[in-house]
Design a protein around this nucleic acid. Structure first.
Length: 574
DNA sequence: GCCGTTTTCGGCCCGACTGTTTTCAGTCG
């Protein structure tokens, strides 16, 4: 079983326990373990094989009971505890929790009282008016459930960051202009720049919260108002996206923004620290023991009260950032300004939309000092990949572009060479040897076994001409999972061979992800943050790649395209 | 069920909003 499959089992256990009405903290423990397994950089199988149950206990959120369950699952593929649980609470019921405004208590009640097992049966019962007479239910609740079921069809769960952020930025610009708005910012996972986000969280500072909320829910692209109170409201827009807005008075803006940015676990950590100092931290203020409030207008003040330096939102995942902050050991995170160039882009020579010169011009306008032209290799027939012969021809055009750009931009001639299913590369070594830079990428036969697909990456890294592994897992957000790689082996080989790993900045990729990027820099592996642009506009993706790197604690010295081009050239030669 | 140099037991965030109630339960973030 993979980490993901284990995590899914424990998430299901958590859902079913919750429906059964188990103590909430037991439920939370399973959910926490599930999340911990999802975010774990290492393969649980390896940990288990090397150290058994004892080693499993080292995983955060995994104690004796859950470690034994992981052991059972990995040994037998089954979990007796879950099989027994299913006899009480049918597993299908977990699906009903997906319906907005429907939680474990009501799902449990509908099952017990009416035998409702599926969304279809629930819909039938609601339409027949059978829900309204149950305790705590009424006509409105029934309508709400039907609306929730309908919205399930429209909504697609978590969306890639790249398809939400541009809309959220426009929305924020509109909110800034609403009367009485003193300050406004995104919060939540969007501000932390997670690869996928569920909805848009917004915080506003204003003297008269209710007026701002009234104006917000009246925006023309609001399709439905999901909730509206005196400090908080939530809406669904015509494009299906949802946003929640909290409005606080400006003197409370810092605690509010900090609170809403999360993550939940990061905030729990801060509240614990606050309690140690005799303070209770909420979105409103620090509450002192004598009942008086300590207000923070900025996030910096919140952290300062706790004796901490400011912690960037991208780091706020409770992955050791608070401990590092206490020690003054937070990394100096890479920024978009650090980036000197883009080392992965396509042109009309393969599947790009612009010429070499057009891409070069665009790069120069962005202030870049270096680019690499890296079109596809021949086996990707659909994209008109380059044969050794066409590479020779392309070289001539690169030369022309170099003359045109002069000293203002260094143009490297490269390739994105495919890793074939049989572990060979898609171009002969002689062809690769003539190029300035070689990216090797996985595109086809991703569903090979872990051993096979990992071997392809290892083989590529051991080829002396390969400089960078492009989008290592080849994931495609939000749906296509990456290849089932043995990350320990991949990272070890990258460290040994001195091969850089790419953080592909395309928001559908963000690959390496933040977790593996962090492991990579801890192992001294170099990274490249590239956009894989197929059009000059795609160079804008850079900020997504940088955000992913920042989430992975990456500093400028870890990133080869944040170096002075002279140092980059020396590294490529070595 | 997990966790811990103040704790191996007793905590585990807590307030807003809604819809049902007539003071509160369920859901959400």
């Amino acid at each position: 079983m993979t980490n993901k499959e284990l995590a899914d089992v424990f998430a299901l256990v958590a859902d079913l326990l919750e429906i059964r009405g188990e103590v909430i903290y037991k439920t939370l423990a399973y959910r926490k373990a599930s999340e911990s397994l999802t975010g774990l950089g290492r393969d649980v199988n390896d940990i288990w094989k090397q150290g058994g149950i004892k080693a499993l206990l080292e995983i955060p959120g995994v104690g004796k009971a859950i470690a034994e369950k992981i052991d059972e699952l990995l040994a037998t593929g089954q979990l007796q505890f879950l099989e027994k649980l299913k006899q009480d609470v049918p597993a299908e019921l977990a699906e009903l929790l997906q319906i907005p405004d429907l939680g474990p208590k009501k799902v449990g009640m509908f099952y017990k009282e009416l035998g409702v097992l599926s969304i279809a049966q629930l819909k039938e019962a609601a339409e027949a008016g059978k829900l309204r007479d149950l305790p705590g239910m009424g006509e409105k609740s029934e309508i709400k459930i039907l609306a929730g079921i309908e919205s399930l069809g429209r909504r697609s769960g978590r969306l890639p960051l790249g398809s939400v952020l541009p809309f959220a930025e426009e929305l924020l610009a509109v909110i800034h202009k609403l009367p009485g708005v003193k300050a406004a910012e995104m919060a939540g996972s969007l501000r932390r720049m997670r690869a996928t986000v569920g909805d848009i969280d917004l915080i506003v500072g204003a003297e008269q919260p209710e007026a701002v909320i009234a104006a917000f829910v009246a925006l023309p692209n609001v399709a439905r108002v999901l909730g509206q109170g005196t400090v908080k409201s939530s809406v669904e827009f015509h494009n299906g996206m949802r946003a929640q807005l909290w409005v606080h008075r400006p003197e409370r803006y810092g605690t509010a923004l900090q609170y809403a940015t999360g993550s939940k676990d990061h905030n729990v950590r801060l509240r614990e620290m606050a309690l140690d100092k005799g303070l209770s931290l909420s979105d409103q203020a620090f509450l002192k023991e004598d009942g008086s409030e300590l207000l923070c207008a900025t996030e910096e003040e919140v952290y300062a009260v706790l004796g901490l330096p400011y912690i960037s939102p991208e780091l706020r995942e409770d992955r050791g950032e608070v401990q590092a902050a206490l020690k003054g050991a937070l990394p100096k995170l890479v920024t978009t300004e650090d980036i000197q160039g883009d080392l992965h882009m396509h042109t009309t020579w393969s599947d790009g939309q612009m010429s070499i010169l057009q891409m070069a011009e665009a790069a120069r306008q962005r202030g870049y000092k270096v680019i690499a032209i890296t079109d596809h290799s021949p086996s990707l027939g659909l994209v008109n990949g380059l044969t050794p012969e066409r590479l020779q021809e392309q070289r001539k055009e690169i030369e022309k572009a170099r003359k045109k750009m002069g000293d203002s931009l260094l143009i490297l001639h490269g390739i994105e060479v495919d890793m074939r299913a049989d572990t060979t590369l898609d171009l002969p070594d002689e062809a690769l040897a003539e190029l300035d830079i070689v990216i090797a990428s996985l595109h086809i036969s991703m569903r090979q076994s872990r051993a096979q697909v990992t071997d392809r990456l290892l083989a590529a890294m051991h080829n002396p001409h390969v400089d960078i592994i492009g989008h290592p897992s080849n994931r495609n957000l939000p749906d296509r999972e990456g290849a089932d790689l043995d990350w320990d082996a991949v990272l070890k080989a990258a460290a040994e061979t001195g091969t850089a790993l790419e953080i592909n900045a395309n928001p559908r990729r963000l690959d390496l992800d933040d977790v593996q990027a962090r492991r990579a820099v801890e192992m001294g592996i170099k990274l490249a943050i590239n956009t894989d642009a197929h059009h000059s506009d795609h160079m804008d993706f850079l900020s997504y790649g940088v955000a992913t790197a920042r989430r992975g604690w990456v500093t400028a010295k870890d990133v080869i395209n944040a170096w002075d081009p002279k140092d980059l050239l020396a590294w490529l030669k070595s």
